[in-house]
Design a protein around this nucleic acid. Sequence first.
DNA 1: TCGCGTGTCTAATAGCATTAGACACGTCAC
DNA 2: GTGACGTGTCTAATGCTATTAGACACGCGA
Lengths: 186, 186
Amino acid sequence: MARRVGIDVEDVRRAAAELADRHGLDALTLSAVARRLGIRPPSLYAHVEGVDGLRRLVASDGARRLADVLTDVAEDRSGREALAAFMHAYRAFAHRHPGLYEASQRDAPAPAEDPELAEALVAPVLVVAGALSDVGVPADRHVPVIRGLRSALHGWVDLERLGGFGLPEDVDDSFDTLVAMLLAGI
Amino acid sequence: MARRVGIDVEDVRRAAAELADRHGLDALTLSAVARRLGIRPPSLYAHVEGVDGLRRLVASDGARRLADVLTDVAEDRSGREALAAFMHAYRAFAHRHPGLYEASQRDAPAPAEDPELAEALVAPVLVVAGALSDVGVPADRHVPVIRGLRSALHGWVDLERLGGFGLPEDVDDSFDTLVAMLLAGI
DNA sequence: TCGCGTGTCTAATAGCATTAGACACGTCAC
DNA sequence: GTGACGTGTCTAATGCTATTAGACACGCGA
């Protein structure tokens, strides 16, 4: 009555990511993942370090995929066009993968614990820094400006997730306004 | 062995708010609140509707207090000065009351369920709208601009809470940059 | 003084994470 | 081919959480 399936960490990651994206990060429990994989909850301890490990797994997956998307979208653009594309890609990722996105911000392992991930996260920063240089932002202002852009984007998608925009005005249009505001403010 | 204390909804609110601010919103459980009040968890059901009710209680308290602070700070100012003061007050509140702030964004009851709260939340919006008019933003652009400001502020304090700003650069200075960026972008 | 409502309690159920320890199965050495 | 070992599962048990049901004490008002 054992060895029914032969689960893999990759299987756990896939199941957890789908669960988080479909039912929210709060629904990401060991029990739910085990149910989905057809095994019992304690069996998961052979693959991840408890529920914290499960969350880290999803978080690093999400962070890496977000970083890849953001790096790619700005690859063959520059200046304002690159920045605008970057911002739209950020929001699009959060919409497509709400669970992965939330996990990537909440539970991402510290750089010291996952140096490979930390390195992957540098790429989009460099891309944005390049675009900022294109539009004349001096290098010593890159960090604060990037922090501001990141805050605005994260805040936007988080408020969308929380249902924070109650008024009937068009949300896509408002996002375009935010992009324009940020580009003008840089 | 009953009627030891004589707890009040206000007592529950106070205990819950302090717990959330000191140990994070995840530590806000019926068990923890009951322990702090010296009663047993089931006794709390006489005051709130389970853990969801507890969270709504904290959330509406936080939302109202945040709205009051924001309304007050911009009261005797106008234009850019009012907007800058508003933004700094927003961040300051989130720092002083991290649990209340997070709850106010995550668990605030829907306007239909708490009309009185919904009305209180209108005040800061009107204040900001007035300041936007001061600096020449047409009324039909107020909603998208306010959404953008709110996103940037929420994203900033959320990333601060999550420990998202890893680099050594000064965070206060970066926030000033964000304020300047937003004011320039409006 | 008696009754009733308020606010507490205990007891019990159920879901979650977690640890300990048993065991089956495939693989690899011989 | 066979035996041992490691991998990955299982059951059993513990503890914490929320929640419901139902008992009961206390004080206030009739």
